[in-house]
């Protein structure tokens, strides 16, 4: 095997050094790798939070632009590159539903959380699949998890909305995550 091919293999593995260099240089291969590996997870989060495909697509686009723009701010001592991207995506999606035109789409009725969304087979299917994955959890654990991870509410906000002690919210989320880790290790 030639040296250059050998070197290419290493570059393709993309350590963070290569990744950050690639983003700064607007390298297409680097983008392709990022997009291929992470766009379904990021788009899924954006879709479940915003419940609209066009808004979720905007969030996904904003996320990648911000990643390229702020790559210098990534600090690998505080987490992986993916979790950094994930937080950018969640924050962008949460901003859309809280401060954008979609801000009144979420309604609460105690633990019965309902989303007011236009009928869209793609979203219905995505929702059904997600709820199926969460079905093994106890009902209140599942609802709190949805509020926290997919609807973007902080733990203190959930405690207020559900009139539940803050500590209970936290412990229910921890138990739910622990259960999910058993199913999806």
């Amino acid at each position: 095997m030639s040296y250059s091919l050998h070197f290419d293999i290493i570059i393709e593995k993309l350590s963070n050094i290569d990744l950050i260099k690639g983003l700064k240089a607007k390298d297409r291969n680097c983008y392709n790798n990022l997009y291929k590996n992470y766009s379904p997870k990021l788009y899924g989060i954006a879709l479940h939070i915003t419940q609209k495909t066009d808004i979720a697509e905007d969030v996904l686009q904003e996320t990648f632009i911000k990643v390229f723009k702020h790559v210098n701010r990534f600090d690998d001592s505080k987490g992986t590159f993916f979790t950094w991207m994930l937080n950018i995506c969640r924050n962008a999606a949460i901003d859309k539903i809280r401060y954008g035109k979609e801000s009144k789409k979420i309604q609460f009725d105690s633990l019965n959380v309902d989303i007011v969304s236009e009928t869209n087979p793609e979203i219905e299917l995505a929702n059904a699949e997600l709820w199926r994955c969460l079905d093994s959890l106890e009902n209140d654990h599942k609802e709190i998890l949805k509020l926290s991870y997919y609807y973007g509410y902080s733990h203190s906000e959930i405690a207020k909305k559900l009139n539940m002690p803050f500590g209970s919210v936290k412990s229910k989320i921890r138990i739910a995550i622990r259960e999910l880790r058993k199913i999806y290790p």
């Binding site: 766009s39 379904p40 997870k41 990021l42 788009y43 899924g44 989060i45 879709l47 479940h48 979720a56 697509e57 996904l60 992986t80 993916f82 979790t83 994930l86 937080n87 969640r90 995505a126 997600l130 994955c133 969460l134 998890l145 991870y149 997919y150 995550i177 999910l180 880790r181 999806y184």
Partner: peptide, 12 residues
Amino acid sequence: LSVMADIGAEQP
């Protein structure tokens, strides 16, 4: 958060 992202992944 990554676990939750894996579960809810959707192809754009």
